[in-house]
Write a protein that binds this DNA or RNA. Structure first.
Lengths: 208, 208
DNA sequence: TGGACTGATTTACCCACGTTAAGTTGATGA
DNA sequence: TCATCAACTTAACGTGGGTAAATCAGTCCA
């Protein structure tokens, strides 16, 4: 990927534009250069559950290298600039390119396990602070931390990640603001001291 | 796997015995010939969340072929008889063996996405009936349906899969029995008409 | 300038589920 | 025969988070 592939084309997606539709065969993956996206499932009653969050620097979706069919739809949560990486070029490219994608796939796999634990066993407060902590840690790994850490998700988006209603997300996030753990700037949320956000919550660091 | 590997050794595990411990390097995977197992995470307060369920016929855990370290512990939920498949033999074996494991890995990956949707958006009733329906469908695919479909999990185990307390699982399951959707035989649960168990619940078949 | 959106905010009410605490039942075994 | 243990059961009670319905604040655009 960084490895010896030529100039790949840049793609732009507007917020709410789809990068992929469930059921479609995929002939490429994307690296997000700017902006955020997600994989999601819609319920018949219109509710949405987000099953994966893609941050700037992430590859979306690495599993297409193995099984090049999108099981679920991918949509941009903000305006997005992405590098398009044809699967054909990957499969023939250096082992390094493939193994980077396999690594990303396994990371996503383990992250999904962690989310099952959060959704199954954590309170609203714990899920939200865990989400903010995860976001910070992932941005850091991707070399994308701006000071301070800003989160361009609507409260509705957050609700759809953590499995709550937007009303209750607002309650929790407003309380976090009262405690000084987050700040609002217009509609975006800022986490001024990300290292503190996930301490003490529920007594719920993981173990075992 | 069925493909040209020699006689692999059989292993037996008692209920509650570990097949793998989190953090350990793995030099083999297992195919469950008899019995059920799970991957789980323990919280500091002692609560447990099961993140994957392995049924008779399943391979456990296919991702070890790619990344041969167990992230989480695997434990037997019933007595287990398993075929031990050394990873060394796999990596050098026919493509067929490898691709069967890759298929299983992607199936588990997609199943995890589905569970995130269930835990995030379904009621207790919906999660439990969806679990029973999934179990039936998987047993069927593995060619392991006995008539009728019996589920050898304790209510505590079920609670740890669906993210509820055992007390509430008991309430839901007792109500299902009142409705004739399940039967009890001693401590094991029987689903007499699996095709009906997941209809009408919450209006919550998935879509999108 | 003023609708028409989209998203955030807040309130009041309520119920699904958790908590706690007794039970009961059946299997095992000295 | 009784003790023990694991699992299931039931009840009373409390609460975290859902529901519904307004209102408010930006932003876009005619």
């Amino acid at each position: 990927m960084k490895s010896g592939l030529g100039k790949e084309p840049l793609r732009r997606f507007r917020r709410h534009e789809h990068l992929a539709l469930g059921g479609e065969a995929q002939d490429r993956v994307y690296r997000l250069d700017e902006g955020w996206a997600c994989r999601y499932t819609l319920l018949p009653d219109g509710r949405r559950q987000i099953t994966a969050l893609y941050l700037p620097g992430d590859v979306c979706e690495p599993q297409w290298v193995i099984s090049s069919k999108a099981e679920l739809s991918i949509v941009a949560l903000t305006d997005v600039i992405a590098t398009e990486i044809p699967l054909g070029s990957i499969r023939n490219a250096s082992d390094e390119g493939v193994s980077e994608l396999i690594d990303a796939l396994m990371t996503n796999f383990n992250r999904q396990s962690d989310w099952i634990v959060s959704l199954g066993r954590r309170s609203a407060n714990g899920r939200i602070t865990a989400l903010f902590a995860e976001i910070y840690s992932r941005l850091q790994q991707n070399g994308r931390v701006r000071q301070p850490c800003t989160i361009p998700l609507t409260q509705q988006d957050i609700a759809d990640v953590v499995g709550l209603t937007p009303v209750h997300v607002n309650r929790v996030v407003s309380e976090l603001r009262r405690q000084g753990l987050v700040q609002f700037s217009g509609k975006t949320i800022i986490v001024p001291r990300p290292d503190e956000i996930d301490r003490q919550q529920d007594g719920m660091g993981l173990a075992g």
